[in-house]
């Protein structure tokens, strides 16, 4: 309820042409808009352009916005439309299968060679190389945080967008689904892959650091 009231207030301020309301909105969403735009366009610069164009779309549409969705969802829909149009104009194929049906391309959360053979007579599919507990002091080190950021950056754009919104920014799965127009299952598949890879990257780093 409090959120709805806050959004109504923000909306009224925007419609009254209040610059501080616009600045607050831009600060809150612009980085996420850029990240999501990168699913559709090849470079960071192009993604920045798409985000800037989105804000013009938001301003030009704000008087007509009817509040049938949340303001956030509406802003991300504008972004998606602009990004798609631009990708088509630039002759780029949309990462359709990656976004619409990630489950079609299987990816293991943990390398298969970490496990015993599924046909192993006694321990089928059990760990061959077990994970070791992580030392807490290393986890809290600044360098670990850098590795974490690098691991996110190395992800495919769709996985990067989902894990950033969910785990870095703390959106709910429903909010991410609405913003990216994903099914519940696909949101989860993308999140699963992203988290699995980031965990693996941390493990690799912490094992190195520990030896």
């Amino acid at each position: 309820m409090a959120e709805v009231a806050a959004e109504d207030k923000l909306l009224a301020a925007l419609r009254a042409r209040d610059e501080s309301a616009f600045r607050a909105l831009v600060r809150e969403y612009h980085p996420s808009l850029v990240r999501v735009a990168r699913i559709y366009v090849p470079t960071r610069a192009a993604a920045e352009d798409v985000a800037a164009e989105t804000w013009l779309g938001v301003l030009n549409g704000i008087d007509r916005f009817e509040g049938r969705s949340s303001l956030r969802t509406w802003i991300f829909r504008i972004l998606t439309n602009i990004a798609k149009t631009r990708a088509v104009r630039d002759g780029r194929t949309l990462p359709f299968s990656a976004l619409a049906d990630p489950a079609r391309v299987p990816e293991a959360a943990v390398d298969a060679d970490r496990f015993l053979d599924p046909e192993h007579p006694r321990w089928p599919g059990h760990w061959a190389l077990k994970p070791e507990p992580w030392p807490e002091d290393a986890l809290l080190a600044a360098e670990t945080r850098e590795r974490l950021a690098e691991a996110i950056e190395a992800l495919p754009a769709t996985q990067r967008a989902v894990i950033s919104l969910r785990d870095v920014e703390g959106w709910s799965s429903e909010e991410v689904r609405n913003a990216l127009d994903l099914s519940e299952t696909n949101q989860r598949v993308l999140l699963h892959r992203a988290r699995s890879k980031v965990r693996a990257a941390l493990e690799e780093y912490l094992n190195e650091a520990g030896t």
Binding site: V26, H30, A52
Partner: peptide
């Protein structure tokens, strides 16, 4: 536990912030 720790660490990463140049341009557009 490692997956939980990963999620918790991600939650403490600084979020990307808006660059001053981008903010200035957007406010001009406004």
């Amino acid at each position: 536990e490692q997956i939980r720790e990963t999620i918790s660490l991600l939650g403490h990463l600084p979020e990307d912030s808006l660059s001053p140049e981008a903010e200035r341009e957007l406010l001009e557009a406004f």
